[in-house]
Design a binder for these strands. Structure first.
Lengths: 256, 256
DNA sequence: CGGGAAGTTGAAGAGCGTCAAAAGTAGTGG
DNA sequence: CCACTACTTTTGACGCTCTTCAACTTCCCG
């Protein structure tokens, strides 16, 4: 986050034309990726930045969906609640992920910061106007939605048909891929969310998740530097333990 | 299906201009809903009709995604397999539902006919060309994808956090709403898919699904005319048993 | 009718949840 | 800087829901 502020500062100092977006680390990903300089400038006119402290909510289920967000840095959780308080975390979001797709102008889920969070906020109405001028933005949105749909289907397979071990293995595997894609390949992966968050994402309890972590450590699959820093020691075995395709097929990227 | 053929026949007889789509029962729903007469005519030029017998596959996971389909009549199941054969039915599709959204030109799931099936088939490439001319078609696609995403999230809540009873209650509830929306309100609901299909959709076993049906019958919640024809006797109780919002909130419609 | 698939029912077992307590970690103020 | 508190994580014992395995019944289609 500190780095982003420096970049923003640099952008503003270098002249009026260089919009905050131009120096954005997310530029090239998400919806911004399909825009040229002129279009980015127009986008940045309707953009504002939002930051959240860990635990703070971006919005709640049933809120009017007035904005679309792109995550610049940090990790967020998206979840839904049942009447009696049971929680399902439908996904974790990271840098360049889109938040706020909604039908009928109402968010169907809540979103909270896991770590400190920096986001770009776009008013839906103004974005809609831009879409009319730049249809390829809407096409990009459809691509993103299609990706998320594929990821959602993978998650359904996980929830409905995998064992606790396979669930955690799949989760760690995706987290690892994600880290490697953004930062370069390398050692330990950071697990920003709590055991409870992970449990509510995998359809398990905190205790079961913790037990699986311990088991993975005991069989030499991972090393637990701290509860939130994991090193994968046997990558092949982890892949195998996900229970997914025998071959090394590509999993879907979006929304973890 | 017999009825559709009659409609098509009527359309063809009445003149060259009246395309098959114009008389389609699905017209007004799905992607076709946002098109005017001229646009429908252009769409029908690239449309072909496909019919499948029960159990036949429309396509398999990993196939090249060359077509997009809209279901005219019947019921289809969409599923994914794990390496060892475990199956997850991610959704059931009915009249007016869209099949074939895919990223990277590859289907991420398989689709099979549950009942006899009639579909409209659109070649992706040609549809893409139409999108460039009619951006509102793409907008409609985004709407549909957003809907399906919301439905997928509801399904994740079901799979990860609901009991067997709540799962079946939710399933029957959605099936009931769906029937009431398409045909008028009324008595018994048809459950075209097998217990095994339902089980693989709810993350349960055939036996568990069967036991829940029996239990629902014994407590006077439903009447089982046959295994595939259910009458809901206590609608309020069914709603309550879904475990979802206390209030009578709208569930998401797409992809069951 | 008859044979095979689909559905139902029962008994036993496993995996994960629940409850409880201990150990580790982090944040706060003296 | 350390102690105190509160929370998160881990570990253990036990129980329950759903699965597994098996037998029986019903339905459907030739």
């Amino acid at each position: 986050m500190a780095q982003d502020n420096i970049l923003d500062l640099a952008a503003r100092r270098s002249g009026v034309d260089l919009s905050p977006c131009a120096a954005c680390p997310v530029r090239g990903l998400s919806i911004c990726g399909v825009l040229d300089d002129e279009q980015i400038r127009r986008l940045s006119d309707i953009t504002s930045e939002v930051t959240l402290a860990p635990g703070q909510a971006l919005f709640y289920e049933q809120d009017a969906a007035e904005h679309l967000y792109v995550i610049k840095t940090g990790c967020a959780r998206v979840y839904k609640l049942l009447a009696d308080g049971r929680r399902m975390v439908t996904g974790f979001l990271f840098t360049s992920d889109l938040v706020g797709l909604a039908e009928a102008g109402i968010y169907a889920y809540s979103c909270e910061a896991v770590t400190g969070l920096a986001l770009c906020r776009f008013p839906r109405a103004k974005l809609q106007t831009m879409f009319e001028q730049y249809p390829h933005m809407e096409r990009r949105m459809l691509e993103i939605a299609t990706n998320e749909l594929a990821a959602a289907q993978d998650q359904m397979v996980l929830l409905g048909r995998k064992t606790a071990q396979e669930k955690l293995a799949s989760f760690l595997y995706l987290l690892m891929l994600r880290i490697e894609r953004h930062s370069g390949k390398g050692g330990s992966i950071t697990v920003p969310m709590s055991r409870g968050d992970i449990a509510d994402h995998l359809g398990l309890t905190t205790e079961s998740v913790s037990r699986c972590f311990t088991q993975f450590r005991k069989i030499g699959l991972i090393k637990l530097d701290t509860a939130h820093s994991v090193t994968v020691l046997d990558r092949a075995k982890l892949t195998e333990m996900t229970g997914s395709e025998d071959d090394g097929f590509e999993p879907h990227s979006a929304a973890l």
